[in-house]
């Protein structure tokens, strides 16, 4: 359905925006390395089914590979800036202060409690959903502390948030047309979108209505 395709496309767009920006400018200011590391973890734990070789479609398999590959490439590029632009890199690390363990730990516990089956694949899948819903927090935390972000960073976060938001009408659609309801996905998806809502509001006020992006 249209919402799901648009959601996937905006997810893809967010990654392309990020990749191109870092590649072109060799700058990492405003980007949280921790959030990017969390995304690698999210994709690697979610798409473990690639290893079972019971692939669903060319589209599905290809997108999964692209997401894993692109998230690893982002880390590589950021690490490249360490040499190219050490001052900006150090400044980023210095401001990227939210501790990952406070996110990974609770997500692991939640995955142990909420899952469909107590198997490694299912636990990892559930973990990836929980982790994805909070993976943006180091990035938002960084933004809220610095109070300023480049327009591209905000476009990136916007596209990323839009993706899960578009998945919500997709789930409603699938509930009625396929009688299908993936409770875990829906709940974590709502949580994820809720975390973005504040950001969406500021984005709308500042970026869409002109003016620079500045948090109060």
């Amino acid at each position: 359905n249209i919402f799901r395709i648009l959601g996937d496309l905006s997810h893809l767009a967010s990654i392309v925006i990020l990749l191109r920006t870092v590649q072109k400018t060799q700058r990492v200011d405003g980007i949280s390395l921790k959030t990017q590391i969390l995304y690698v973890l999210v994709f690697c734990t979610r798409y473990l089914d690639l290893l079972t070789f019971r692939w669903k479609s060319v589209y599905n398999t290809l997108m999964k590979m692209v997401f894993i590959g692109a998230s690893v490439r982002v880390i590589q590029l950021i690490q490249g800036c360490k040499i190219q632009n050490p001052v900006a890199y150090k400044d980023m690390i210095f401001r990227d202060t939210l501790q990952i363990k406070y996110l990974v730990g609770p997500c692991a516990v939640l995955a142990l409690i909420f899952n469909y089956k107590f198997t490694l694949l299912e636990l990892c899948w559930s973990f990836s959903l929980w982790l994805e819903s909070v993976a943006i927090l180091p990035q938002l935390f960084m933004l809220s502390r610095s109070g300023k972000a480049s327009t591209l960073t905000t476009h990136y976060i916007f596209a990323l948030g839009l993706y899960r938001a578009l998945y919500i009408p997709n789930w409603i659609w699938r509930y009625y047309s396929e009688d299908r309801l993936e409770k875990l996905s829906v709940f974590t998806g709502l949580l994820q979108t809720a975390l973005y809502s504040d950001f969406f509001y500021i984005y709308y006020k500042k970026v869409v209505k002109g003016a620079g992006f500045e948090l109060p």
């Binding site: 089914d49 019971r54 997401f67 997709n170 993936e182």
Partner: peptide
């Protein structure tokens, strides 16, 4: 019955 094959979303 949520198996890994059911998870067709990204």
């Amino acid at each position: 019955d949520n198996t890994i094959e059911d998870k067709d979303e990204l």
